[in-house]
Design a protein around this nucleic acid. Sequence first.
RNA 1: GGGCGCAUAGCUCAGCGGAAGAGCGCUCGCCUUACACGCGAGUGGUCGCAGGUUCGAAUCCUGCUGCGCCCACCA
Length: 837
Amino acid sequence: MESSEYDSSAVEASVRALWEERDVYRYDPGTYDADAAGQVFSIDTPPPYVSASHLHVGHAMSYSQADFVVRYHRMRGERIFYPMGFDDNGLPTERFVEQKYGIKAAEVPRAEFIELCMKETKTTAARYEDLWRRVGLSVDWSQTYSTIDPRCQATAQASFLTLLDAGYIRRSRDPILWCVECRTALAQADVEDLERKGRIHQIAFSAVATGKPLVIATTRPELLAACVAMYFHPGDERYAELAGTFARVPIFGHEVPIKADPSVDPEFGTGLMMVCTFGDVEDVNKWRQDALDLRLVLGPDGRFDQSSGPLAGRNVDDARRVALELLKSSGELLDSASVRQVVGVHERCSTPVEFQIRPQWFVRVMEHRDRFRARAAELVWVPESMKRRLDDWIDGLKWDWNITRQRHYGVPFPVWYRLDENAAPIQGDVLTPELSALPVDPSTDLPPGFTESQRGTPGGFTGDADVMDTWMTSSLSPQIHDGWAVSPAGSDPALAPMSLRVQAFEIIRTWLFYTVVQSEFHFGRVPWHTVMISGWGLNEQGKKISKRDLEKSVGADGFNRYVPDQVIARYGADALRLWATSARLGHDLRYNEKDVKVGRKLTVKLWNVGRFLDLHLDGLDPSVATPIPVADRSAVDRWVLAHLAETVVEATEAFDRYDFTQAHKAASRFFWSLFCDRYLEMIKDRFLDPDKHADSERLSARWTMREAYRSVLALFAPFAPFVTESLYQRFYAGQEKVVSIHVSSWPVVDESWKTDPSDIDQMVVILDAVRALRSERRLHSGTRIAALIVDPVSGAPAELAHAVAEPLRTASRADTVVFGSAEHPSGLEGIAVGIEP
RNA sequence: GGGCGCAUAGCUCAGCGGAAGAGCGCUCGCCUUACACGCGAGUGGUCGCAGGUUCGAAUCCUGCUGCGCCCACCA
């Protein structure tokens, strides 16, 4: 038996080897029984973007939190389906590859670019998997998926075709959000706010009829080229007479109608505004509502086109500068002022979002919002307050979900368009494959009934060149797991719906929302029973952990406290995970290295109790000996079991409501202050002073500490899986004949443990007073004292004092207990104590 | 502007209707045959502010203030 200093690296490596060798975390499909469906516990985990260049301790925190819950359920005997995926298609990966290789997707042959993407995602995914294994996530790695693999492509395409058939998807030429940097369409969820300083300009138009100046305010003078109307508030008397007349646009000279609309704020600026195609959402609304002209002047590459005169060929910033110069020299720029503005930017590259018009695939979410709200209400939310975030997002939706992206690395749309005699696509004439043929790539595969020679020819066909929004695939993670699109039998009923979705709060509006959409449209139900939302691990300043933290926070010894690999090497994965126990679900937690040290101390303490057992169990062998009935054990032994019983109940109830923080606290409180600091100290005397104690007392202690330690290890197993497994293997696995503590080993309270602990509780109060006396005299706790003097008043205190005299003597390391006169208050009413060294 | 969350010991955080808590830090002891990554004893808080409900409020209600996040947004 090894019983040396704790070496986390060695212990964790050998435990990991055991898990992998025995395949402890493999999902057991078993036999599906509808009545026993609760026995499967299935988890829908977030597939991380493999392009996120580095994982930090904050990621380790949220993934660990999911693992706590999963491990608890596994220990309760449920069959765990715990897969892990990697999200490797879509923009983030492309941008990562573009940056790493210094290329632009558009300027490299498509096949070559995709090959680079695949290569990068493979190596990064392997690195992630390795880290997650070392963190101790109890994932069944045989269930791993990648959002670009054939199964996922087939699932996404099947969803698309099914939704198209059911009328949930439309193709239309709408104004769409567009990123000129990434040169692709975006969905509302891809856009975030950026606050910045801008300038607002007063610009004079002129009334066509009278030549009078009409002054508007704008932050985007370059869009004068795209101006199609001027508006004022219908109640604004200053401009009432302008209704139905026209204004002339500066620089460009075209005439635009002047109209009234209640959405205009008469207090803002001059009370007159211009509408362009398109500067913002209001422009789009008025353009639709009043059927205004279309003057699209900004191209998909972010440059002004030939119709924009002096601005032609320029990008937005350049065009703005030129427009202002022209206005200034013509005297039409009346005023400019600084203003703080908030602009919508693409969240991946922070480029301000522009508008384009082109045919796109949209999922009709707007008209079905009530259905999504109803499903959101069916879900169990942990914490409950997070439901509001989804409700608010649904309420604030403005557009249908645009699932079209003009990129290269993604799932292609499984459609072809029939071409007319000029080889132009015929609107609405869409060719689709059989579901059984999926996945298809329309750029190389053929539509049913066509030959390759007809590709791109008059009367022939052409494949859709775009790819799907990455969320189109990841929102199908439950269906990827249950085999919906690829298994002949369809969704595995044991996995549909799933038990639990785990994720952080920032992707509620994307991943969570879109998954609800898919599940509702395809199956008319929720995708999971419960959603568990974790917070973020923040840096020491309370901010999001940044790339800078990962790169710059390096000490003189080269140690970076934010890099999980380094933290694990120094303190152990158990210690890092134990830090994550202190974050309440849905709440952020500041990361401090010292808090990992606290976790480290707990793992070392658990280990050292193992050494204590090695010394004192004295070959106790449950496989041949029979335990002493609890009723026959010493009072202190019964006492510790009574508190253990309370602890197990508390931890179990906490875990059942996903409150792993309380479960950990309960275990910790019991283990440290009751089991170690009091119980083990109290029983030591039985071993160290054998003459004063009967063999039966020692045997009672041996059985009790063996049983209690078994439960302690199990209570901590979800949090610190490595050290608890190692100790379980050392002391219990052989006798219990169970491969791992992590399987069906959650502690069970024996009814006989539930005794009244109050006598010893009170004794402990007296003991504390005795310890204070010893401390005053600078005696260490091993030093024996000649006598403990107890001075109780008659009645209940005297009865108690006599009842606990012997355990109190033992715990105090006193040779005798003397009932006599003493001065020092014990902390208990009616009892004073003293010591004679 | 709307919504949500948070404000408790120097720090990180529990507690959320019945006598202010933990860990870290700090002070004083103790190298005691499980553990100095330890043990014992201490220090430290008018629980953001102001009202209200209650026999009783850190805990419930109202209003402020500050911080964070989400949404909207002023052309």
